[in-house]
Design a protein around this nucleic acid. Structure first.
Lengths: 141, 141
DNA sequence: ACATACCTGACTAAAATGGTCAAGTTTAGA
DNA sequence: TCTAAACTTGACCATTTTAGTCAGGTATGT
């Protein structure tokens, strides 16, 4: 299972977007400066976010990105999946028809990781961008 | 955050141990054969489990490992911590006195990862070796 | 004494991570 | 129409982590 910087950056960038895209599209350059994330890396991330219809882009001067849905409709789950940060635990090698590791039965931890995945996914399905926005504005900067 | 094979192997090995250590210590060789895990790798894992007082060892012929507590007293949490599979998400770089990434405030995702950690830890704190044993014996092999 | 089993540390191939770099294409506005 | 801002794409790469292997030990029951 993995949850790394890419996922964190994606979330940070989208929260930034949600705060600033109300009038004009927001350029990655601005996000890069505000959030301290490499522009080149942001481009990779936004390419994936776009493919997954989380953001829309406008080219040219004054171009940039906007959210394609309302903040409360974008769940963290969607974001993390989009950037390939699927919550997936180590799979048992070659789960053949019946069991794991070539055994006849599933290994004892098999169901455990399944449960964990569900547990974590539930967490992320409940959280939306909107939730993070609230959280952020409550804090007095 | 990471949750990889090492943690899975540790859990598998300890479940195996719990099932077979009732009379004699169990040798890593046996576990290796039954669970299909490299002996050398198991030795590394058990070294850590021992340091964390999860298992006890006996040397020499007929030696091996036994659990140092009852299965229901060993939480998965303990196991995963022992083998350095702490549930930890990516830290914000150099969280200085006040905020993340040199900013004055915490980044918007900061609390989020904290919450997630708690969420996952809670899951593992509730599960004991005993729970997995039950699960396993229910299944007809 | 000797085989078994634990113990320790160094080493490594492969994969993942967190980017950088280069070379575009598109479009608004002067 | 020219040009610069901004998106787009894909190759590349250094570092770290992972999942082990290997080579030696040391302790102990029989």
């Amino acid at each position: 299972m993995k949850l790394t910087s890419k996922g964190r950056y994606a979330v940070m960038a989208l929260v930034d977007l949600a705060r600033f895209d109300t009038i004009n599209p927001v350029s990655l350059r601005d996000i890069s400066l505000r959030q301290g994330i490499s522009l080149d890396y942001l481009e990779q991330i936004f390419s994936k976010l776009k493919k997954n219809q989380i953001v829309k882009s406008t080219r040219g001067i004054q171009g940039g990105y906007i959210l394609s849905k309302k903040p409360n409709e974008i769940k963290l789950n969607n974001i993390l999946n989009a950037v390939d940060e699927k919550v997936k635990t180590v799979q048992c090698k070659k789960e053949s028809k019946k069991g794991c590791n070539g055994k006849a039965t599933k290994c004892v931890t098999h169901n455990l990781w399944d449960e964990l995945e569900t547990h974590i996914n539930t967490f992320f399905e409940k959280k939306s961008l909107q939730d993070l926005l609230k959280n952020n504005s409550e804090r007095v900067n």
